Simulated scan of single mutants.
Amino acid sequence: MSGAPVRVLLADDQPLVRAGLRVLMADTPGLEVVGEAGTGAEAVRLAGEVRPDVVVMDIRMPGMDGIEATRHITEGTTGAHVLVLTTFDDDAYVYGALRAGASGFLVKDMALDDILAAVRVVAAGDALIAPGVTRRLIGAFAARPEARPGSAARTRALPGVTDREREVMTLVGRGLSNAEIAAELFISVATVKAHVARLFAKLDARDRVHLVILAYDAGLVAPG
């Protein structure tokens, strides 16, 4: 974005929460709040009007909830990434948000600096999930019958994926950002992004979170 601030839309039915985030982001260089919504339907409408880079989305809102609003936004043409920020880290909400296309899932008791950093991570096209939620997500995936060794062996070959792309996919599966992968492999961030884009296309991965799951399924990364 060549120095342009990250444009943020806040969607939460609690005015005090929106006000707190707005003040916090106003004091943070590189972030700009371009709109506020108190309902899911309003978030969808404003996303189309103000074209934010990131929508910080609550889940429990009157009428259309945050998960349905996330689905509408990610399936639309705004190009906005959705970062779910909620009080509730119930597994049903986590899976629902990720299936709807959310790029991140955080809980409101996280440190404010971590929430601000997450907005930038999601704006850059990476995915980020609260550490405790990630552990449960991977644990649940590892317990699925289709995630056991026999299935991993069947998919381990990853036809069409180059050795370098396998390296990148492995590091994505370990949770590294594009910048961290670039440093690990001594390549540019732009090159990492190109590899990730090709992996999306070759593996029909919806987003970076989906790519993480595919890395586990292929045996490139082991739970724990």
Rank of each mutant, 00 (worst) to 15 (best):
A19P: 06
A19H: 11
A19L: 11
G20N: 06
L21E: 05
R22V: 01
R22T: 13
V23Y: 09
V23A: 13
V23N: 10
L24Q: 09
M25F: 12
M25S: 07
M25Q: 04
M25E: 01
A26W: 10
A26M: 12
D27C: 08
D27T: 12
T28M: 05
T28L: 02
T28Y: 06
T28W: 02
P29H: 01
P29I: 09
P29L: 00
G30K: 00
G30R: 00
G30T: 00
L31K: 01
L31S: 05
E32S: 14
V33I: 03
V33D: 07
V34N: 01
V34T: 05
G35Y: 00
E36A: 06
E36K: 01
A37K: 10
A37W: 11
T39V: 08
T39Q: 07
G40P: 08
E42K: 12
A43Y: 05
V44F: 11
V44I: 12
V44W: 14
R45I: 02
R45D: 14
R45G: 06
L46Y: 02
L46P: 12
L46M: 10
A47L: 03
A47R: 00
A47T: 12
A47D: 04
A47I: 02
G48S: 07
G48C: 07
G48H: 05
E49N: 11
V50I: 10
V50F: 03
R51F: 10
R51L: 15
R51W: 05
P52W: 02
V54K: 04
V55D: 01
V56F: 12
V56M: 15
V56E: 07
M57D: 04
D58C: 11
D58A: 05
D58N: 03
D58M: 08
I59M: 05
I59H: 04
R60G: 03
M61V: 03
M61Q: 00
M61A: 04
P62L: 09
G63P: 07
G63K: 04
G63Y: 09
D65N: 15
D65V: 09
D65H: 09
G66S: 06
G66M: 10
E68W: 02
E68V: 12
E68M: 11
E68S: 11
E68F: 04
A69P: 08
R71S: 14
H72V: 14
H72Y: 13
H72F: 13
H72L: 14
H72D: 13
I73D: 15
I73F: 15
I73H: 14
T74F: 01
E75D: 12
E75N: 14
T77L: 10
T78V: 12
T78N: 11
G79S: 00
G79N: 01
A80R: 00
A80L: 02
A80M: 01
H81L: 07
L83A: 02
L83Y: 05
L83W: 04
L83D: 00
V84E: 03
L85M: 07
T87M: 15
F88N: 11
